[in-house]
């Protein structure tokens, strides 16, 4: 129910696209996959199989759409689970993943993700909307060096105060 509503609301972020039922990568079999070079996914909204992936909606948005997308979830009473990053070094991109879930029994997990250039990773902050994003964003900044523009206090949280390294980047060598 709420999933449908959220899907419609998020869909408005991507005016041209239609909802794709399942990821195209999974539809093709292994041999084909190996043959072509995997390309990063285009922005858009996917409906995922909950039994396999553990979440329902997967929206990949442009970095400047993050605040808008999170605002939609905030209006629909989602709570923030976590924010994290993934280093896609082959595509020279960093991905920021926002997890959201619900307190009521209307189960719907939503993942918002955005990809930014690895050399200049900048994402707007969502601390204005979710105060709890503060630490999560600081942690992501610690580990990946992603700059959250507008974050009130972007200093190392888990790493030492003077840390200038980002350990979860794939090219980080201890």
């Amino acid at each position: 129910m709420i999933c449908e509503e959220t899907k419609r609301a998020l869909q408005k972020l991507f005016p041209a696209d239609e909802v794709i039922a399942e990821t195209p990568e999974e539809a093709v079999d292994d041999s084909e996959k190996k043959a072509k070079k995997p390309v990063p996914r285009a922005n858009g909204l996917l409906e995922r199989d909950y039994a396999v992936h553990g979440y329902h909606l997967d929206a990949q948005v442009a970095a400047d759409q993050v605040v808008e997308a999170v605002g939609i979830l905030d209006k629909a009473d989602f709570f923030i689970e976590s924010i994290t990053g993934v280093d896609w070094i082959k595509d020279n991109q960093l991905e920021v993943i926002y997890d959201f879930s619900r307190y009521d029994f209307d189960l719907c997990r939503v993942v918002i993700r955005t990809r930014v250039d690895r050399n200049n990773p900048e994402v707007p902050t969502i601390t204005e909307i979710y105060a709890g994003a503060n630490w999560h964003e600081r942690e992501t900044h610690d580990f990946f060096g992603i700059k959250f523009i507008g974050h009130p206090h972007l200093i190392p949280l888990l790493l030492p105060e003077d840390a200038d390294f980002h350990p979860l980047l794939k090219d980080y060598k201890a």
């Binding site: 009473d77 989602f78 709570f79 976590s82 307190y103 979710y130």
Partner: peptide
């Protein structure tokens, strides 16, 4: 409040 819990993901 419920709202605080939600904003922080408690």
């Amino acid at each position: 409040s419920k709202e605080t819990c939600r904003k922080y993901g408690a």
